[in-house]
């Protein structure tokens, strides 16, 4: 390779990726920040410069963005503290090596492949307040009064839980697969050595396996949190009206305002979503950093 040509060759090889990356990822972020400072009543008309007014207005009663953020954070917390431990438990049970391991693994992973739209429509039927299997099941067990008459999804108190259940159902298999791959990567000598020293299965898991697969647990946590923050498909299928629903989330409002003559508001939501996703990714990374000798991170 001639030295003179090198910058040109490098640039040519990078060109397709750079065009895609800058045009579709970087530029929209910059554009969002810019749009969020204007009114944008229509797509072609930026309207008045309003500064940070959009960000302040977001939390007004009119837009009610605070509720959406709280809902997303609740979903994220449920994912981290219910979904991931469940996934870890399944992965540990399978990773020990049992009969039919592959079969269980493959079945657990199946829901991951199904479109969230299909899952939403299926669970909507399951939750149906008159014909759904939840209501029928409760009736058969003489527990009809547990289920609110408007259905789990219709009642504001239970709605978020009703959104969360299909999410666990779908994604436990995904996180389980990641953790299972990590557990299978742990050298079997370590497990044997611990067992020769008299460790029980529980102790092996606690003191050998889990510390080794920490990096994968970290990635699972990041995926679970960012996934919850940007959840859309399932909720969009459940929601009749994006604004007037008790389980609204940021991306649902983003789409609604983007196409209801409030581009500035939608862009402000986009900017806040990016900051939240990056913020949580950095926070989780920091929490998982090994402490040094002085106990500092």
């Amino acid at each position: 390779m001639h030295k003179k040509n090198k910058p040109i060759i490098v640039l040519l090889f990078l060109l397709p990726a750079l065009v895609l990356f800058i045009g579709i990822l970087i530029w929209p972020i910059i554009a969002s920040v810019h749009h969020s400072l204007y009114q944008y009543p229509t797509f072609s008309d930026p309207g008045e410069f309003v500064g940070f007014k959009n960000y302040i207005d977001l939390f007004n009663k009119q837009y009610d963005f605070g509720k959406a953020v709280i809902n997303a954070l609740i979903l994220a917390a449920l994912s981290v503290f219910i979904q991931l431990p469940l996934a870890l438990g399944l992965a540990l049970m399978l990773g020990k090596g049992i009969k039919g391991e592959r079969f269980y693994l493959s079945v657990y992973f199946t829901p991951v492949l199904i479109s969230a739209v299909v899952i939403g429509m299926l669970w909507e039927k399951i939750y149906n307040p008159i014909y759904g299997i939840v209501v029928k099941g409760a009736a058969a067990l003489n527990m009809s009064d547990v289920i609110p008459p408007e259905g789990l999804l219709g009642n504001p108190k239970t709605a978020l839980l009703a959104v969360f259940i299909p999410t666990i159902w779908q994604y436990v298999g995904y996180h389980m697969l990641l953790m299972y791959a990590g557990i299978k990567g742990v050298s079997p000598e370590l497990r044997e050595a611990a067992m020769l020293d008299g460790a029980t299965d529980g102790q092996v898991n606690r003191y050998v396996i889990i510390p080794i697969i920490k990096p994968i647990i970290k990635i699972s946590i990041i995926f679970a949190i960012t996934g919850s923050l940007k959840s859309y498909d399932l909720i969009k299928v459940f929601a009749k009206d994006a604004y007037d629903c008790s389980y609204k989330v940021p991306s649902l409002l983003l789409v609604r305002y983007a196409f209801h003559n409030a581009g500035g508001i939608a862009s402000a939501i986009a900017v806040i979503m990016i900051i939240m996703c990056f913020g949580f990714a950095i926070l989780v990374n920091w929490m998982f950093k090994e402490r040094d000798l002085y106990g500092k991170k």
Binding site: I24, L25, W27, P28, I29, A31, S32, H35, I222, T226, L229, K230, Y232, S251, L254, V255, A258, G263, A266, S267, A270, V271, M273, I274, C277, F278, A281
Partner: peptide
């Protein structure tokens, strides 16, 4: 880490 949703409106 960049969520796809944020690109929706500008794109």
């Amino acid at each position: 880490t960049i969520p796809m949703h944020v690109a929706l409106y500008p794109i």
